[in-house]
Nucleic acid binder design. Sequence first.
DNA 1: ACGGATGGCACG
DNA 2: TCGTGCCAT
Length: 628
Amino acid sequence: MPVARPEPQEPRVIAHLDLDCFYVQVEQRRNPALRGQPTAVVQYNDWKGGGLIAVSYEARKFGVKRSMRGDEAKHVCPGINLVQVPVSRDKADLNVYRSAGSEVVAILSTKGKCERASIDEVYLDLTDAAKEMLSESPPESSEFIFEEATKSNILDLTSDASDREENVKAWLCRADADYQDKLLACGAIIVAQLRVKVLEETQFTCSAGIAHNKMLAKLVSGMHKPAQQTVVPSSSVQDFLASLPVKKMKQLGGKLGSSLQDDLGVETVGDLLGFTEEKLQEYYGVNTGTWLWKTARGISGEEVEDRLLPKSHGCGKTFPGPKALKTNTAVKSWLDKLCEELSERIQSDLNCNKRVAQTLTLHARASKENECNSVKKFPSKSCPLRYGTGKIQEDAMKLFESGLHDFWGYRNTGWSITSLSVTASKIFDIPSGTNSILRYIKGPSSGASSTIVDPSSTPDLTPFVGNVTQTDIAHVHEEQCQPSSSIKEDCDNSSLAKQCGATEEKGVSKKLSKAQESGSILKFLSQSQSAFHEKRNFDGLICSNQGHESSSGASEAGQHGKTNINTAGDHSAGNTWMLNVEDIDPDVVGELPLEIQREIQGWIRPSKHASTKKRGSTISSYFSPSRR
DNA sequence: ACGGATGGCACG
DNA sequence: TCGTGCCAT
């Protein structure tokens, strides 16, 4: 249920940007012959022509809709081009679209707080940028207004086609406008500039809404599509909402919206004004009641989050009807594929963004054979996430078995699985200070590269390290996760590549020596080698490196065609080493430099309250098994 | 044979 | 906290 947020007193300038039929645009960029053609993107072509997930505007004219089957689309629009979503491991692979989305986010995140709302949607808080423009180069005293901005749709600004742009320009430059409206005008200009920049740099068009809050911005971003923007002056909100069907509001497209209609006779947002806040709370609870009351008045305090990356990664597949999985073997086989992809994606997230996921969750849908449709839900199950494809597969299968156990009780026959998915969540940044321990462990690209290989500026850990042997290193390498090639270029393609840092490769011998050093450090931190192999769940991560030679000779770096740059983004050379937090020897850590101790605390993270209160505040207290 | 694959959020 | 919904595209 939605919940109201406190309303900031200062007026804000919020934008919502939405890529137009995004998947189609991605395919059109890849194959320009598709431009201007009726086109749709489909997945799984075998059954009724596959399901449409994006439809070009040319095709929409024929009545082609999302959720149609390919066959239906062909029927209403015989000339339509159907492009298939890439398939990898026998399932749809959306990585090309994710990557393309990141390109856009990179551009949009330059002007203010930016929230990646989905693969093709972004919220911006442009308040500061708008204020700056207003004080330094206000539209009203500018000779030229950015042309794309003059094509804006201003809610309530009625004008016929002939003088529309003149009227818009006049509105944008109005000297007698509210402070609020002036800010909005600046916001509109900034968004127009951003949209043009996105188009220039990615060839993608997008639509946008500019308003004083997220709700209104989102509401209108889709009003004029494609490739247009819409502004909501606060003076127009009341009338606009009055006649708006409740179902159009975000969050009201489902059951809550239906309930408003069916139970309260509320057809439009305006109808909601007839209810007091208390009355709405009576029906829907305090939170939702207040939210509804505010929503009816165009009030929304929800802030734009500063987040460019997703909060979770999920891989799933459905097995409709006859495709349902009925054996453990079939489930295992599919789960393995899903986990492979998931592993690749979190590995990429780690390499590119220095983030680690902590929780693995399995979702499934199941139906029982004979026994009359007992629609019992298959329970989701989760556990701490251990890195490494094999471990994820192993854990996922266990989660499945656990779920199946609950699903069935004890009798174990005749189930069938109609969907499976695995999700990695609770993702955190890995701290990386200048004096980070990662400098000891990672390759040259981790910090100041020169100091890494310069012993004089690198604190000497020798006293703590003890014997370094090849077996230590081999042991560490066992824990490596090698991403496959399919998302190898993720970092390079996405703007996020910058975060990977770019460095020239150092000599192999130096890297080897770094590897030895890091292996020894891991060994040094590790209390018991055998613990690595126990079935316990992974509860922490020591490091990722970017730039070491892989131990296997099968490095594909050469195929990359890029020498010399961004070894960090080159997955083929990136290894990740992991160590179970439970295996870190607290006594030994206690002797490390303080800064490093603090950093290690950061890895153990669960921060908030988890361990500190229960177990005191010394670092060693973090290393007793924290869960399970 | 539910459009499918992903995501986010609030609740209990 | 985890698991369940609901919502969105």
